[in-house]
Design a protein around this nucleic acid. Structure first.
Length: 317
DNA sequence: AAGGTGGTCAACCGCAGATCG
DNA sequence: CCGATCTGCGGTTGACCACCT
């Protein structure tokens, strides 16, 4: 292990753009002898370059099977699909695109596809909608109230429910207060607050899911379901694009099998709020390995996701 | 015409797994 | 087994170019 010493500053090897003469020397040597040891190649080929530079020039530019020019629509879709599964594994993606180099794909991603996803409101790391749950909270609450109004109850039951909901409302107001604090933290936008924001989010969700009275509250379940409804709606622009097959995002240990199984994957995935919150809090600084989010705080005591409530399906259908 | 700005992409940097002696 | 070296990879940089003001 360790860094190769071949590019040692003290050796006075040339760096920077390659000249046509250098290209000719490299191509001629490799055609006649193969590259063999990259470390030894520059000296044998008469080049004042390090082996690493020669290898890069060959694999990214001079190799005869390189396909140059614009990426086709099919190639673009392939990159998007593979990236949604394996993340920034450029060499793995390149292995599925004959004639394209990892460097080329990486550049194409950073200059085109990444921006495209962002413009579509998608997180380029997760390929899922970027949703600010907290800013949509008033909408969520309004939806929840609307849902309640739409439900026709007998008067006796209604009176009983009014009493119960008065209690719940006080709890919701407490939750709102907590979330407002979180919103203020997010709007400050500083990295220093990032971790604290995440913790506060989780704390808020813990409030949602803890305690029997809260847990059994139809109002809170409706609010949660409605928030998922909002999330679901926000996926529509993406889902309307028929070419953009969305696949489930696995962890960073995804293997070749994940790529090969693309065709067997369900076409769409609705993100959990937990994932969305976690990703939005971390994606600015973390790689795909951040997916080890603790989802436990989103679960009921019986290990049943709160959003699996039939009401959620009713609202999101 | 000149300077500023943003996009593109070849090339470099440094890390880490693989391999070798 | 261990340390040195090789190789591959992903992130980043900087030169170049086109467009805008």
């Amino acid at each position: 292990m360790g860094r190769s010493p071949c590019c040692d500053e003290t050796t006075g090897l040339k760096k920077g753009p390659w000249t046509p003469e250098e290209d000719d020397k490299l191509v001629k040597y490799i055609h006649e002898n193969g590259h063999g040891s990259w470390r030894a190649l520059p000296k044998l080929a008469g080049l004042n370059r390090c082996g690493k530079s020669c290898r890069l020039r060959w694999t990214n530019y001079l190799r005869p099977d390189i396909k140059r020019g614009k990426f086709s629509h099919e190639e673009e879709q392939t990159i998007l699909n593979l990236h949604s599964v394996i993340g920034n594994k450029w060499s793995a993606i390149a292995s599925h695109l004959p004639g394209r180099t990892d460097n080329e794909i990486k550049n194409f991603w950073n200059t085109h596809l990444k921006k495209k996803l962002i413009q579509m409101g998608l997180d380029p790391m997760t390929h899922r909608p970027r949703t600010d749950m907290l800013s949509s909270l008033p909408y969520v609450i309004a939806l929840a109230n609307l849902k309640e109004l739409m439900n026709q109850h007998p008067w006796e039951e209604h009176a009983f429910r009014l009493k119960a909901e008065a209690v719940q409302l006080a709890k919701v107001q407490s939750l709102q207060y907590l979330l407002q604090l979180t919103s203020a933290s997010i709007s400050s936008g500083s990295n220093i607050n990032m971790h604290n924001t995440f913790v506060t989010d989780v704390d808020a969700i813990d409030v949602l899911n803890s305690g029997s009275s809260i847990k059994d509250s139809s109002l809170l379940d409706i609010a949660a379901a409605a928030s998922l409804k909002g999330l679901h709606d926000s996926t529509i622009p993406f889902l309307r694009l028929p070419e953009l097959q969305q696949v489930p995002f696995e962890d960073s240990t995804s293997t070749k099998n994940d790529i090969e199984n693309l065709d067997n994957s369900p076409p769409t995935v609705i993100p959990t709020v937990a994932e969305t919150l976690t990703h939005n809090s971390w994606d600015a600084s973390c790689s795909s390995s951040y997916r080890e989010a603790d989802l436990s705080s989103w679960r009921h005591d019986d290990d049943h996701l709160i959003f699996e409530d039939p009401l959620f399906h009713e609202l999101s259908s």
